[in-house]
């Protein structure tokens, strides 16, 4: 992930968003950053946290089945 040009938040997967969030928390905890950068990090952190929460709320289990060596959508019997 390019540090200077972060992906738009709404394009991130849960893992990507959470990994970046953890990096930001670690960076903020070190407390060594210039103030302006810290505030930017804080704002991005807030947005990432919101993104993660939303992704958790609307997550749906994705089920696929192997057909030979390839994957196909699996329809569950209800």
């Amino acid at each position: 992930m390019a540090k200077n040009e972060p992906k738009p938040i709404e394009a991130l997967t849960y893992e990507e968003a959470f990994d970046e969030l953890e990096t930001i928390v670690a960076a903020l905890e070190s407390g060594e950053r210039p103030l302006e950068e810290s505030i930017n990090l804080f704002e991005r952190g807030q947005a990432l946290n919101k993104r993660c929460t939303e992704l958790l709320e609307k997550a749906e289990l994705k089920v696929q089945a192997l057909v030979g060596d390839s994957l196909a959508e699996f329809k569950e019997e209800q």
Partner: peptide, 17 residues
């Protein structure tokens, strides 16, 4: 599947029937 859906819907499930 119901258990996974309830506990951790973020996972990707692959069935080998």
């Amino acid at each position: 599947l119901n258990t996974l859906r309830r506990r951790m819907p973020l996972v990707e499930v692959i069935l080998a029937p």
